[in-house]
Amino acid sequence: MGGDKIKKDRRQKREDYRRAIRQDGVSELPRKKFYRQRAHANPFSDHQLIYPPHPDQMDWSSLFPDYVVHEEPQQPQQQPNPSAAAPSSPGTDLAPFQPKRLSKDVEIADIGCGFGGLLVALAPTLPDTLMLGLEIRVSVTQFVEDRIQALRTQARRAAETPSDSSPPPAPGMYRNVGVLRANAMKFLPNFFRKGQLSKIFICFPDPHFKARKHKQRIVSATLNSEYAYVLRPGGIVYTITDVPDLHEWMVRHFEAHPSFERVSEEEQESDPSVAIMRTETEEGKKVERNKGQKHVALFRRLEDPEW
């Protein structure tokens, strides 16, 4: 009874808090304690996920409103015509939904972005590149959503009210970062076209220690083919973990995959994204506090051979 009551109170508090923070104009950063969720999710189960049937039908406009292209109304051939009902006339039939277009495509994906530390640190360093976090846990996704919203509001306000001490930040800060709840192991090709991405981050993935859970790991021989599909040749997969065996596992599987080669250590250390990945991810900070090790490995997408 008592436990139930406490649970209820906690849930109520969470809901109140989240509602308050989502109100317009709130620029306070969300607090994690109202968004905690069990660290593991089963990637094989049918979650109630929302995903587009095809990348062309993905509506990015709510995630990246500043990049929406304001187009003229649709050209006439898109209008329903009288013969549309006939099954033999493709065209209108086959393009059921035309979302608003963006001026550029998402190029960076953070698979399992967690509380969004990497994205938030990366966004100002690559201000003209759209980046998307994918996270399977609902509450955690909401946290990142609220965090991005608050950061955008803060950046806009800071730009409006100039202070003497520091130069005003760009008003558009953080408008290039978005987050989605998704199961990246199943639905990556629903969001991204072939070769759309230039960077994929896989930071501190669930290690799935038990041998029988290894098939749930985010890196596997067969899944790497999907990363290769959405990455353009020359694109990079960034991995970091504090678990030595998982590091070995990821290195083994990417090196064995003919579409990838390991990036040399010098190149790895000169990549500014690596430093951010080491220090700015939430897990990275935790490992730092606990004085743990961090293992980094980068892999480059190779050109496909002739076929």
């Binding site: 290690p207 220690f209 041998a211 021989a221 067969t222 678990v243 065996d245 596992w249 083994r252 064995a256």
Partner: peptide, 16 residues
């Protein structure tokens, strides 16, 4: 080279 890695026989725990 796509073979699903055989589960390594672990002599130490994966966590440390």
């Amino acid at each position: 080279p796509l073979s699903r890695s055989e589960t390594p026989i672990i002599l130490r725990p994966e966590a440390n």
